[in-house]
């Protein structure tokens, strides 16, 4: 028996979310009196995983699994879970993890709770706290199955150091032809851009930005902060920005450390999707805008004056604190 954790990597290096799910898995393992086994499809060594409580790393070294494939990865994770006798499997809520989790759940006849935000409240039965109604509420959910899958929301738990000796083992799952019936033919991904899913800081613009030609100042602010850019729904509907930047109830969820909303009124559907962010800043010239009720810090004024000034101040700050 162990807690199994799916640790994602990119170009052989663990993503930050891998350390977060590992930290969480360690917390669950402590509650159950067991240890954490991680599965990696890309990383050649455990690296920093040992800092976050991972006792064993299963390295999958199969040519065919170099690139993500939901069905094949689910099959491999199933076999790893069976080999380790895992009763709990922890994964992130990245697009890939959300894609494979339900497949894995059916294969293992496991319960699956998505968008989990805290350590289990109890283990008999296993009860977790998750968001529902797109962040308008929390739901306490119990799972009655022998094996349980927990999808941990980004930034909900954070990193918890726990120095552990990690043993490494090669793992070769047996795969079938059926695992490769869906195949990627091309990928279109900006290599140097911070994504909304991975970003610690998100700079978001609304209709108050007046037009796509004014996004330069938001991009500069984002670049200064190492942030991703996002937008409200009408902004993407009007084609000012790509759909992939649309955040909110019907767009992407944002759970950043810092969310800066510029020229966004704060409609209920927008707020629902971004409210999981830790600190929210609003810049808006209308003091009555609903976002002022949902934010931690606010500046009432014209975005076109405030944003460039704020960027200058932040550049100074960065220079002094480098």
């Amino acid at each position: 028996m162990s807690v199994l954790v799916y640790t994602e990597s990119e170009e052989g290096k663990f993503k930050k979310t891998a350390f977060e799910v590992a930290s969480y898995a360690k917390g669950v393992a402590d509650m159950l009196g067991t240890e954490v086994t991680a599965v990696s499809f890309g990383a050649q060594s455990a690296g920093d995983l040992g800092n976050y409580g991972v006792s064993k790393l299963l390295k999958v070294n199969d040519e065919k699994l170099q690139k993500f494939n939901a069905k094949a990865y689910a099959d491999a994770l199933k076999q790893a879970a069976q080999k380790e006798g895992a009763k709990v499997i922890v994964l992130s809520q990245s697009a890939n993890a959300k894609y494979l989790a339900p497949i894995l759940a059916v294969q293992l006849e496991a319960g699956y709770a998505s968008n989990v935000v805290a350590l289990p409240e109890g283990t008999e039965p296993l009860q977790v706290k998750r968001t529902a109604f797109t962040n308008k509420a929390f739901s306490f959910t119990t799972m009655s199955t022998d094996v349980k899958i927990i999808g941990l929301s980004k930034n909900a738990f954070g990193l918890k150091e726990s120095q552990t000796e990690t043993t490494e083992e090669d793992f070769s799952p047996s795969l079938t032809e059926g695992d490769f019936a869906v195949n990627v033919v091309s990928v279109d991904k900006a290599a140097d851009k911070v994504t909304i899913a991975d970003a610690e800081i998100v700079v978001s613009g609304g209709r108050g930005m007046k037009g796509p030609e004014n996004w330069g100042m938001l991009e500069e602010l984002a670049e200064t902060l190492g942030a991703a850019t996002a937008c409200s729904k009408p902004v993407s509907d009007m084609g000012w920005r790509p759909h992939s930047e649309h955040v909110g109830q019907t767009g992407k969820p944002v759970a950043a450390n810092l969310y800066i909303a510029v020229g966004i009124s704060g409609a209920i559907q927008h707020l629902a999707g971004v409210s999981a962010s830790k600190t929210k800043v609003v810049i808006n010239n209308d003091p009555e805008a609903p976002f002022f009720k949902a934010a931690d810090y606010g500046v009432v004024g014209d975005a076109f004056e405030i944003v460039p000034k704020l960027t200058e101040k932040l550049k100074e700050f960065k220079a002094n604190n480098a």
Partner: peptide, 23 residues
């Protein structure tokens, strides 16, 4: 059969007051 059950719901804590900063 079912695998899970939502046993209880809770609404998020209301947000504390905003700090306004002079532009």
């Amino acid at each position: 059969g079912t695998h899970s059950k939502a046993v209880k719901f809770e609404k998020p804590q209301p947000k504390g007051d905003i700090k306004l900063i002079d532009p």
